[in-house]
Design a protein around this nucleic acid. Sequence first.
DNA 1: TTGTACGCGTTATCAC
DNA 2: GTGATAACGCGTACAA
Lengths: 334, 334
Amino acid sequence: MRATIKDVSREAGVSIKTVSRVLNNERYVGAATRARVQEAVTLLNFRPSTAARSLAGRRSFQIALICDNPSPYYVYEMQSGIRDRCEADGVRMIAQPYDRNSVTLLDDVESLVDATNVDGLILTPPVTDYPAVLDLLARRGVRFVRISPGGDVDLTSSTFIDNEGAARMMTEHLIGLGHRRIGFIAGHPSYATSAQRRNGYLEALQTAGIAADPALTVEGSYDFASGAAAAEMLLSLDVPPSAIFASSDDMAAGALTVAHRRGISVPGQLSVAGFDDTALAGFVWPPLTTIRQPTRQMAYQAADLLLAGEDAPVERREIGFELVVRDSTGPAEK
Amino acid sequence: MRATIKDVSREAGVSIKTVSRVLNNERYVGAATRARVQEAVTLLNFRPSTAARSLAGRRSFQIALICDNPSPYYVYEMQSGIRDRCEADGVRMIAQPYDRNSVTLLDDVESLVDATNVDGLILTPPVTDYPAVLDLLARRGVRFVRISPGGDVDLTSSTFIDNEGAARMMTEHLIGLGHRRIGFIAGHPSYATSAQRRNGYLEALQTAGIAADPALTVEGSYDFASGAAAAEMLLSLDVPPSAIFASSDDMAAGALTVAHRRGISVPGQLSVAGFDDTALAGFVWPPLTTIRQPTRQMAYQAADLLLAGEDAPVERREIGFELVVRDSTGPAEK
DNA sequence: TTGTACGCGTTATCAC
DNA sequence: GTGATAACGCGTACAA
């Protein structure tokens, strides 16, 4: 049978309230008393009931992850990072894998908040920028933290990477190798990161004095199939690009597969680069050059911000990225 | 503010208990009364508190997924399938992404059971066959269902596919194409499915009268890197195989990458086949022939079994698989 | 068919 | 520092 606080208090010879004090690390408990209580807790293998705690107290020791993303790897990294941080605080994570086409999202979130009394939520793109969701949470007075938000940065704490800077760096790298016609596969417009990455690409071109050919930018939706389709378009151009820069690793993998199918050797005839949010493409096809985004760390830091406490100030925490070069070839000779 | 049962009862002009009856679909409620209550529930946007329910009643409306698997795609499919089924019953899923090397697994599970009072658990390989975990759960009298268990099939309900038959079918397919030296990359021995799949491979060879060369079976651990390493070994043999059959898609992807790196064309000089638990390799590299395992369905059905109720009999539910042929070439000419 | 009284295991409040 | 006691929001048992 489960042990209760009552059992512990009897075992330690103190009152129920004192046990509760020890469990919650409150002050005003004698060192000796505290020790005896802790002993009893260990002896009886006692774990407080989350249900009772959340009913009686202000905290529920649960947070939720609202994750809605086309990449399972991304979701997995998110969950792992958050769980790592939560463990330290004895907080449990409720993960909700949402269908990104769900029309009941808003209702689901409200239901979650009402039913579970979570202490807070972590939002990932593109939900980070859904006004309806943000409004709802603000109205309900629920704490939440956002990962890679596109705007309203003063609304809540958030973690992010410099997507614009990263895209610029990658584009500069490609230009440095001699590439002049660089295809760009953008992410889905509902993600704020898509525009940020595209801007970085365009800036680098401008700085280098290269005119941006609109035909070289194709819109994808962050998944494999759209990357493949975009690459088909780019490689079918009269003057195809000598390099393709994809806004996600899944799309980069799609582009690589298309190149392979068409008998184009990578690298050599074509260079492929991509953002790598999930470490997927990086290992599937070694010659890929990537911007390595530490998704797991972003998640960990987001959880850290959320667990910081109710009156912690709004904080924007920037996470570093890394340029991983696995292909240093320039454009093929004419 | 959250609405409570009290608010609803006042709004509908009935007692608290009657509202509770409607919420739980109990009998002995007048149709008119029921309608009025439901109206009030909708009006006030009422959602019962999970904490209060689990404290007062026998159910907590929460189940947990103990998932410990090297493939993020697998984990994602599991979560999605389970969540789909849970949604219909208003049950919430607590997903625990465990580190497969965690030494605190047993403690974590017990902590989960004690703290959350989950109505049940779903176990995935290899935890499905950890005696310590099975003992613990049985001792605590907690319901649980297992996915692809290796033994003790009468202990709990479970879902599974015929791994042996599937591996046999794939091997027969390869033999039918003319392959005689077929390399096999086994899964990690802690997974019961590894042995099942290997057995199917060996049976097919025997039936076809092909002597099994021990050097052609290499042990992997279900992930990309081990698949690559295994392929290196197989392709370095004095007489390398003309086909490689991997026990998972990640390992198949690893094998494909190695072949590519060595300048071996697939298909043509080498055929690659694999189990596809996650739809990963299938799209990354089209020529791959796979056993398509409907992971999501296995999860859905597992949740269905778990939610069936306390006194549902132990049931083994078999899920169908599919042989997806994308390469019909035989061994290369000598 | 409906309502009343009680208890679930914990935290909050306020005494001591 | 420590302890009684009242909540928290719901389901259960039993009465009406």
